[in-house]
Design a protein around this nucleic acid. Structure first.
Lengths: 193, 193, 193, 193
DNA sequence: GATGAATGAGTGTTCATTCAT
DNA sequence: GATGAATGAACACTCATTCAT
């Protein structure tokens, strides 16, 4: 399996650094190869093309969120608490890796339609977990039972995303972690029973 | 004044169509010129360079939102109602011009840092109006007085943006206008006193 | 006759200024028109094309040299003295008009082969006068009778041209007029009987 | 070292041919690549940009002159003889490579200011060698001791350049090599003690 | 005669990808 | 597996010239 070979991860990590440092449009394959300490051609032994690198970066890095969220979902806890954990987890992961935050919030969004569609497919896994929490909350009577699930999802994800993007664009001028309880309150108000 | 000449608007409109149809990265100046029915060189009588076209597209089109919002802000009405009007207005404008919706929600976000910074400057005007509504709501006791203004703004804009983007990405499979009252309720719940 | 109309000279003079200030490759027709205070299209009522402007500039301005030299040639004076006058005249004319000097010594030489061929045709008139002096000098026994006429011409013109070009390239750091007697001595030594 | 790779020289030589055949302004990078038998992009593995090609052409080709002259300067011989060798060498090199002659005497002079400044820097090396000969001649009493060094240099270089340029412009209608002794005599007369 | 808006051909350079070694 | 030299398609922008007014 290619994904377990050391050079695979080496190239993924190099891509994150190069994109964060140079921006999406200045992240040439040759720069990534150099950063990874391999030859340009070697990249193509591990990835089909440049698009494949970018999508893989997203997949690999998103898995941290998704796994974090999965742990939360299976916990024994009220849905509202799971929602709070989710927000805290999201902000916490991005706070710790500012390179990653820049790459996912700003740079990868400059990619073309094809890549974005594939990125969205990855995101869907994350959103599905969120849906699970919301459904549970409705069933346990914690969240409004006439709540529009899709809209609630968009409320929560849109807000989290906007807060994070603002934080990145303003060069981390405020502390992201300290926002989570306030964000949770706002969102919970919106959807609670 | 160049902006009042017919060819200026002709080119702006052509750019929207070309970007919507081909995507940001495939919107060559020559395609825009052809769509506008002018020679390539004519573009440069009205715009400094390609970047200038893209920023102008955003400015010209955003002005519809901003003016619509401005009218709402100065109205004699409770802040909560203004908020509702704002959401309705936002969804209504984009519903009517699906080309524009695609361009602002998806394509222009692929632009490089410089262009995005200028686009953000235009967006700021919009967000400032939103802030005015929120401040008014806090003062009149309609919105929670301990509300974090920035967070409330991110809640509202993030949600609206996410709903709209989803609508565009899902090829307008749901009716955007019919979402506004539900979105309003969710958001109001979040911030009301 | 077009050449006597005021706008003709106006455009020629504008061209000299624009070329001297901006360099040959930055001397666009529109700049010349602006400097001349006429519309772009007006240029084409007086000149066939851009090439025609440049050649006309050279012709008009060279005529000062050629007329000055003609006066010298028909004088009653020994050929050696005529040679001295010629050098003095050449340096004096260019010293007085540094714009012209830059244009003829540096800028017009960047033109393409076609233009340069036509410029050379104008130069030929000048060189023919020089030949007349040289022939006279040989016949009157002042210059070596076995002198190669073409070579002598190249010696004299090449030296004058090199001195002038150096003077322009070094931003007139030395006084050109004060060189003439020394240059005359060097050249006379080369060709005298 | 890039300069020693075969493609480097291949491209330089191709540039000389293309410029000689098509003229400076019609020497596109793609033509040079085609003539060199490489892809357009390959040019940029060996040269920073087009300007770099042109300057390198001049540098590489001038080095033949400069090395030839250097050998002459260090010889055990009277300064007057060195001067003669220099002229003979100059004419001989250009006689042998008529492409090169056209390129250095006519085409490269059409380049813009930046390129010409860099070309002049290369020429300076050549003129410095000439100065060395002249100084030696003055010290050994062969050349006039009150001679103006700069003027003497301009006399010699201006004459050689004019003779060569005429020869190129007249399509090599006379034999350049056979001019050298006559040119030497004329110049020596000018500066001898 | 005079205008100036409109035209559109032409080109240096980048960079993802390949493939012989 | 690993390399990196070579490839070549693609595109924004300029500016001499025209021509309807």
């Amino acid at each position: 399996m290619k994904k377990e070979k050391p050079k695979y991860k080496q190239i993924i990590d190099a891509a994150v650094v190069v994109i964060a440092d140079n921006g999406y449009h200045q992240a040439q394959v040759s720069k990534i190869a150099k950063q990874a300490g391999v030859a340009d051609g070697t990249i193509y032994l591990y990835f089909k093309n440049k698009e494949d690198i970018l999508i893989s970066v997203f997949q690999e890095k998103m898995s941290v969120f998704i796994e974090g969220l999965q742990e939360i979902v299976v916990k024994e806890a009220p849905a509202s608490e799971k929602l709070e954990f989710m927000i805290t987890n999201h902000f916490s992961v991005l706070s710790k890796d500012k390179y990653l935050a820049r790459v996912t919030q700003l740079e990868l969004r400059q990619s073309n339609r094809d890549i974005r569609l594939k990125i969205n497919a990855v995101l869907k896994e994350y959103l599905d977990q969120l849906d699970a929490i919301l459904e549970e909350g409705v069933q346990t009577g914690l969240f409004a039972k006439d709540m529009d699930l899709r809209l609630a999802r968009q409320l929560i994800f849109g807000t989290i995303d906007e807060v994070t993007t603002s934080w990145v664009m303003k060069d981390h001028k405020f502390d992201l972690n300290s926002q989570s309880s306030k964000v949770y309150q706002l969102l919970l108000n919106g959807i609670k029973a």
